[in-house]
Simulated scan of single mutants.
Amino acid sequence: MQPIPAKLAALAQQENLHFLLAVESGSRAWGFASPDSDYDVRALYIRPSAHYLAIDEGKDTFEFIEDEWFDVGAWDIRKALRLLRKSNAVLLEWLRSPVVYAADSAFVRDLNTLAPQYAQAAPLLHHYRGIARNALGAMDLHGEIRLKKWFYVLRPLLAARWAVQRGGIPPMTLAELMADLPPAAVAEIRDLVALKSGQAENYRHRLSASLIALTKTLAAEVAALTAPAPPAPATAPLDALFRTTLQRVYPC
């Protein structure tokens, strides 16, 4: 497969845009990939000034699907900054991805400087709790389950707890999110991560009694969490970042 940065460079030229940030999302970034995990590239981009000067709003997303192994989903800078204003968990995750394929260093620096002031526990809790609830509701913990799906329960439970108890932007990787778990649980989960790394995505597994209990305990704990309503977010810093980035990337 052609290297991902080269694919992105070709896409940027083809679509007449500039990638500000492109990262890996999904299991390869979360830290529990399988050999046949696909590549989920997520990105932020900016277009030339004329795109933003029309009376009608232009399209603010971009998607490219090459095959079942590689796809790109991207947001225009204005969409991304509006979502940051709402403490969007997905965008904040992308900023914490350990796998970066492309980055406009000035933009990423400034965005990371701004991001913490917009990361609010209430919307993050709502996002991660909802993901965990839906994933958990679709499985029988006491039966044989797809191991991948269990990680899709565990990780958002830990992220929700982190957002409320520690504050700020939760880490993206499962390894970092496990910091507050008992050592025995961490060791057992690490063993499952290692097991999954050698199995296909559809691998099925029967959880131990201790991990079933841990999952139920975390789910109950997260269900009971509360967070104060976020304060009204400031728009001016985001407007300034948009304008300075547009002028720098596409000077008039």
Rank of each mutant, 00 (worst) to 15 (best):
P3Y: 11
P5C: 07
A6K: 15
K7I: 11
L8Y: 08
A9D: 11
A9W: 11
A10K: 15
E15Y: 09
N16G: 02
H18K: 12
H18P: 00
A22E: 03
V23Y: 03
R28A: 03
A29L: 14
F32T: 01
A33C: 00
P35T: 01
D36H: 10
S37F: 12
S37E: 08
D40S: 06
R42P: 05
A43T: 07
Y45S: 00
R47M: 14
R47L: 12
P48F: 10
A50G: 06
H51R: 06
L53T: 03
A54Y: 12
A54G: 11
I55W: 14
I55T: 11
I55A: 12
F62C: 08
F64C: 00
E66G: 13
D67F: 09
E68D: 13
D71K: 14
G73T: 11
A74L: 13
A74E: 08
W75I: 00
R78S: 05
K79L: 09
L83E: 04
L83K: 12
A89S: 09
A89Y: 13
V90Q: 05
L95S: 02
S105E: 14
F107I: 08
V108K: 05
D110M: 15
L111M: 15
L111Y: 10
A115Y: 12
A119Q: 13
A121K: 10
A122T: 01
L125I: 09
Y128A: 01
I131G: 01
R133P: 00
A135F: 10
L136H: 02
M139L: 15
H142E: 14
I145N: 11
V153A: 05
R155Q: 06
A159Y: 07
A160Q: 12
R161H: 14
W162K: 01
R166G: 00
G168T: 04
L174N: 06
L174D: 05
A175V: 07
A179I: 12
A187E: 15
L192E: 06
V193W: 04
K196H: 03
S197H: 08
S197E: 09
E201M: 15
N202V: 09
R206G: 00
T215K: 14
V222P: 01
A223V: 00
T226Y: 11
A227C: 11
P228I: 10
P230W: 08
T235F: 12
P237C: 08
L238C: 00
L238Y: 02
T244K: 15
T244W: 05
V249P: 02
P251Y: 03
C252P: 11
C252G: 10
